[in-house]
Structures are given as C-alpha cells and as structure tokens.
Simulated scan of single mutants.
Amino acid sequence: MDLNKILDASNQEEIFVVDYSISIDDYVAIDLSKQNEDLKLFDVSSSKAWEIYINNYLKKANKKVAYGGYLEHRNLYDRSDYFSSQTEEAQRNIHLGLDLWCPAGTNILAAFNGVIHSFNDNTNFGDYGPTIILEHSLGNDMFYTLYGHLSRASIKNIKVGQSVKQGDIIAQLGDAKVNGDYAPHLHFQIIKDLQGKVGDYPGVCNVKELEFYKQNTIDPKPILGLV
C-alpha cells in the first residue's frame, strides 16, 4: 500500500476530513516544532493558552484551519508522563499524524469509503480522548485512518463494522475537557498495518522507532491537497 495507490483510487478531486464547507483556500500551515520560538512566549502546558495562540494565528492569517505536524519534532508532549522518558532517545516527541486545528464542534468526515474498525475513549492526560479508526480496502490491500480528539458524543451511537462513505460526517471535534487537554483539533493519521491495535494507535513516537513508523504511516497532506 502506498500513497499513489490511495490517490489513484480516490473517487473525488478533493478529500476533506473537516467540514467540507471550509475551502482549502482557508487552510494555513502552522509550525509547532521545537524550533518555533513563538512557543516560548506562552505556557505550552495550558490548553487555554494553546487555544488563544491558535486562534490568534488563524485571525492574523485570516484563515479557518491551521494544519501541520507530520513527523514534526515537538516539545509540547513534555507536560505529560504518558509521553515522557528519562532518556532523550526514548522520549516520545515525533508526531505521526496531521493535526488540523479548528473549533470544537467542527464536523469530522470520513476520508474514504470503509467501515468502523474500532473506537475508544483514550483518557490518559495528553492522549487522543475519543477516537475512531476506520478500515479501508483497495483490492486485497487494507489500510486505516484514525481520527482523534473527538467529542464523547461522537462514539456513543456507533458500531464496529458500520459502513461509512467518503465524506460522511462521522464525528465532531471535542474540547479540552475531553480531548486529552488540548486546544481543539483533529489528529488525522493514515496507517498501513494497525498491528492488532483496537481503538488506539501510537500518534507520537521516539527517535528509535521513527524508521518503522515512517514506513507504516503515510503523510496525509497530499491526500488532502495540502502540498
């Protein structure tokens, strides 16, 4: 399974995973890596401070969605014991999905036709919170898309095996109270082999694991037309 095969199989020119009424022209790239000096100007341990920063960034750019983060080295996970380690090499701080920052309550859409593989409320501090994983097939090949940081209502009335179509509304974004204590955003990840995981899959890795996850995930930006 590779990016070109997925792109060739797509049956529409544009694929959206957040509200399709928001044009791609209203998206703006954002750098949340440890090299971004702006992140030293506010309390990165505070979800409220993050939300203010994201909202000001969008307002200044006159855009509605900020995106980025695939394979980005970040310091923002240092606040959580769930990601931290005593050694720098084992520190989980490399982001494996694409983040799309926009308001809580924003509709989340299925990227491709498929079925609900699994879902879970991952409640560790700094984790995904409510999460849905969809399973997709291309011929004999399977791949998966993960949607994290959703509202709790999004996982109340769904079933494993339930069919979804590309563009269907499958969820809404959650707020900091339920989404792992982050400013509202979607973590969207494309995974080749789910490795037996159910309702969860690593969205952050350490440098020792990076080569494996680079092979087992796909950069979502070309699929969403963000290149």
Rank of each mutant, 00 (worst) to 15 (best):
T145G: 01
L210A: 06
D8A: 12
Q86T: 13
L41I: 13
L71E: 05
G167M: 11
D26E: 15
L100I: 07
Q172G: 07
N36A: 11
D31C: 13
N140F: 13
Y53L: 08
N206Q: 10
F143Q: 00
E51D: 10
S47M: 06
I218G: 03
C205D: 07
V18Y: 03
V227S: 13
Y77R: 02
N124K: 12
N113L: 08
N140P: 11
S151M: 03
R74Q: 05
D141I: 05
S137F: 09
L150V: 03
A176T: 08
G126E: 00
N206F: 01
D38V: 08
C102W: 04
K5D: 12
D141C: 09
F16P: 03
E13A: 15
I169E: 13
L194W: 04
A153G: 15
Y57D: 05
Y20N: 14
Q162M: 14
Q12L: 09
F112E: 06
G148K: 00
A104H: 05
I94D: 02
T87C: 08
Y82A: 09
R152H: 11
C205K: 02
N62P: 11
F83A: 03
S21Y: 11
V227T: 14
E37F: 10
Q166K: 14
E14L: 12
E211P: 00
L32M: 11
E135H: 10
G225K: 03
D121G: 03
V18C: 04
I191A: 03
G126R: 07
L226I: 09
Y27I: 03
H117R: 11
D2T: 12
H187C: 06
K5S: 14
S47K: 05
R79C: 05
N120F: 06
S33Q: 08
L96C: 10
L224P: 12
E209T: 06
L226V: 07
N122F: 00
E209C: 05
I54T: 03
K40L: 13
G196S: 08
E209G: 01
L39R: 10
S163F: 15
L41Y: 12
E211L: 11
Y201E: 02
H117E: 14
S85Q: 10
A110E: 03
V28T: 11
F83M: 03
K221M: 15
I54G: 04
D141W: 12
G180C: 08
Y182H: 05
V164Y: 07
G129L: 01
S163N: 15
F119K: 02
F112L: 07
V227W: 08
Y182D: 03
E88V: 12
N93E: 08
N157P: 04
L100P: 00
E37I: 13
R74N: 06
P130S: 01
F16L: 10
E89I: 13
S46C: 06
I155K: 00
Q35T: 14
Q189Y: 06
N124V: 09
S46H: 06
G203F: 04
